[in-house]
């Protein structure tokens, strides 16, 4: 009992301390160093690790100011929710426009037309969805229609919880729509595809682990950059990349959260930071990290790395993210119906 009471007092004391700590913390400028918070999604970790020091050096050269860029990584949806709930980000660099749309809708940190403020739908880099198969491609998987064959196991995360998985789903849909023509047939196709999925992880990295470490499945649907990274990290002799006949242009967008940046006095810095992503210097880093660069000059340099794919866009094929989310992934949408049929 005594120990319990001690515990209670200790807890009260701890609470008091943490409250004091909270009120004392977080001032953005401190002795000539400006801080910037970039809230991003999971696979960009390595990319921004390389880009941030380059930008800091350039900013220092131009303005004499030291800049410290803080990163926060996590699942894109989770990150967007954190920003909505009050995470004080200056810029967000997320996986889907839909997530930033939600921030715009639920807070007044930025205007709804944010995506037109920077070139290429505010996406300094793009990516696409490819297949990662086991060495030598034993099941001879060449294109999307090989994925629905009996006996082929497909690994993809859950589109309800993973942004990457939504791109996977839509790419499969786009293929079926072009091949068979009608929505009903496309739905039939993705239903068969998901019948071949033995495990639905909640995020892209989880699926990569399931496929590469657990040895489950014959093909992994993955971000192109994740597929290259898996090959690099886990050995080129273990996996092959297969590029399907058709895929989707994934545009991970970036934007300044004007409201937050204005409050921190970092508007100029935040804008310069995102514009820097479009410079040849940053674009080169982007290419090296297996994202597709958007600047023409750098594109040519990495042309050999990235095979030509027939890419559909979310706006052209599905009428934008809001419509796609509503139709396919929200409750009662196409994806839910697939699993209700399966029962």
């Amino acid at each position: 009992m005594v120990s319990l009471r001690t515990f209670a007092f200790a807890s009260v004391a701890a609470l008091g301390l943490s409250l004091a700590a909270c009120s004392g913390a977080s001032s953005q400028t401190d002795g000539g160093t400006v801080e910037l918070l970039n809230v991003s999604y999971d696979p960009t970790r390595e990319l921004y690790e390389e880009i941030n020091p380059l930008f800091a050096a350039k900013w220092k050269e131009e303005t004499g100011q030291n800049v410290k860029i803080n990163m926060s990584h996590g699942g894109a949806g989770k990150q967007a929710r954190a920003v909505i709930d009050g995470l004080d980000a200056d810029v967000v660099t997320l996986a889907l426009a839909y997530d930033i749309d939600e921030i715009a809708a639920q807070t007044d940190a930025l205007s709804k037309d944010w995506q037109s403020r920077l070139p290429n739908n505010s996406s300094p880099y793009t990516s696409t969805i490819v297949f990662l198969v086991r060495e030598g491609n034993p099941k001879d998987i060449r294109d999307w229609d090989d994925l629905v064959k009996p006996g082929v196991q497909v690994i993809t995360p859950n589109p309800k919880t993973s942004g990457g998985a939504r791109w996977n789903f839509l790419a499969a849909w786009a293929f079926a729509k072009q091949r068979y023509g009608r929505d009903a047939q496309a739905q039939e196709f993705v239903t068969r595809l998901f019948r071949n999925v033995p495990v639905l992880d909640s995020g892209a990295r989880g699926s990569t682990t399931t496929f590469s470490e657990r040895g489950i499945g014959d093909v992994l649907l993955a971000w192109e950059n994740e597929a290259f990274l898996a090959q690099k990290e886990l050995g080129e002799d273990k996996f092959d990349i297969v590029v399907p006949s058709i895929s989707i242009l994934a545009e991970p967008p970036v934007t300044v959260l004007d409201g937050n940046a204005a409050r921190h006095g970092t508007t100029e810095l935040a804008k310069a930071y995102l514009e820097f992503l479009y410079t040849p210097e940053a674009q080169d880093v982007i290419g090296r990290n297996f994202y597709r660069p958007t600047a023409e000059a750098v594109k040519a340099k990495y042309a050999r790395q990235f095979p030509q794919v027939n890419l559909v866009t979310i706006d052209g094929e599905f009428g934008g993210w809001q419509a796609a989310q509503q139709r396919f992934f929200n409750d009662g949408g196409v994806f839910d119906r697939i699993f209700e049929q399966r029962r």
């Binding site: 639920q106 909640s202 839910d336 699993f339």
Partner: peptide
């Protein structure tokens, strides 16, 4: 990590909560 997370088969209720949050 170990569930497989297939709807109707191995999907736990806390995951459904996360799913709902993911849809805002």
């Amino acid at each position: 990590f170990i569930a497989g997370n297939m709807p109707f088969e191995s999907e736990i209720a806390p995951l459904l909560i996360v799913t709902q949050l993911e849809q805002y």
